[in-house]
Design a protein around this nucleic acid. Structure first.
Length: 98
DNA sequence: GCGTTGACTGGAA
DNA sequence: TTTCCAGCCAACG
């Protein structure tokens, strides 16, 4: 379909975030390969409660929203290593969301 | 149509 | 190990 809705790119990113399993996280790079900043811009503009934005973290496991985000992730069972997410066990490949 | 901005990334110091 | 710099794409004014 022509799909002239609000930029398919933006919706594509949001849709992937919804596919992140509870208790797991993914990186901006996996949401939008080549344009990770775009993913961040999308989230900042999208205040949709159905979008688990807290499951999106930086490539190094650090959090963009700091303590507030950390607390939500711990509620889901995501474990931390210092101030960063244990990416070795909870990171999900972008291919798995696609 | 151009320049700026952004919840970023990878490599170098 | 941490900190700094330049690059990247898409949206917005």
């Amino acid at each position: 379909m022509a799909a002239g809705l609000s930029s398919d790119r933006r919706r594509e990113v949001l849709e992937r975030i919804r596919r992140i399993p509870e208790g797991h996280v993914t990186t901006y790079g996996d949401l939008s390969p080549g344009a990770p900043r775009f993913a961040g811009q999308v989230l900042s503009a999208c205040h949709d409660p159905s979008v688990p934005w807290q499951r999106v973290v930086r490539a190094d496991g650090s959090l963009a929203k700091g303590d507030r985000q950390r607390r939500l992730l711990e509620e889901e069972g995501v474990r931390f290593r210092g101030s960063r997410v244990d990416m070795d066990s909870f990171s999900v490949p972008g291919d798995a969301l696609r």
